[in-house]
Amino acid sequence: MKGYRKYFLNKVLWLLVTFVFAIVLNFILPRLMPGDPVAAITAKLAQGATNTTGMQKVYQQYAELFGTNKPMLEQFILYIKNIAHGSFGFSFSQYPRPVVDILKSSIMWTVCLQFPAIIVGWLIGNTLGALAAYLKKGFDKVLMPVSIFLSNLPTFGMAIFLLVIFGIGLKWFPTSGGYGFDLIPNFSLKFIWSVIVHYQLPFWSIVLIAIGGQAIGMRSMAIYELNADYVKYSRFMGIKDRKIIGYVFRNAMLPQVTGLALSIGTMVGGALVAEIIFSYPGLGFTLLNGVMGQDYPLISAATLIITLMVLSANFIIEILYGIIDPRIKAAQAD
């Protein structure tokens, strides 16, 4: 493991840098906009509200929480402090519920939905892509147009199609929510079954979209590898086809792992919108509610958490990549 040390340290350092950068961006972007954000938010919130003293209190609380009357640097320190304490303030739209409270429940739904879906989609897509490259002819002729079509559809489009066909047309699966609206979350069999049933449509819409893109990428990688000299050489050596396929698959896989790391942000973004279609109680739906309720603290916290999630996922993939790719080991051994 000694050879990996530099690689891992490098990645950890990079994670920290991006982490800090994400927090800074999250802090600075809303403040770059002209006008006092807290006043603007409170003004929006106050539309139609009759309780002016209550509004004033909210304003003061937020001015204090964000410290908008202080210099930028001091504001930033305050912001960091708040994050370190895990305090994102109170939600505007669901006052007096703290933002952390709202996010806590939705993060779990999003993580449990998106990451399994993306991984399953990636695995199936790569397998199909490799098969298409190897089998060619009939299989390839069918898979390619389908994959191109899938990868061109936005995730929310797939979500709507699945919803209309399986949810409304065939009535196989429920159309919205994370569990039956008549149930209270607990660990009964009925509740778990309800969650599983509600899980299917959002899950498969993310999986199908991921399959499309990955299959195309894997196919071209595998075709490239199949024509490489080492494959021909192995054939001359009389190595069994099955074994060669193993080599090819492993080599073609590496760029696909990097590809996953690079595209995971986009995938999560698409999947968040798909959540909205199904009113799935995850971060995407929370974001929508935040936007609808002009709930600045909620949006700010949600975007920060999404960014951190993507960064961590990215980090994990890069670490795995380091372990899989023999070249990194070789490079570090020097």
């Binding site: 840098v17 972007l29 942000g265 698409g270 600045y296 993507v310």
Partner: peptide, 18 residues
Amino acid sequence: NLFTVIPGFVLLILISFS
């Protein structure tokens, strides 16, 4: 590289909302 890992979609949301 920074902007590669920070999801563009999140930036888009933050800026549009602001």
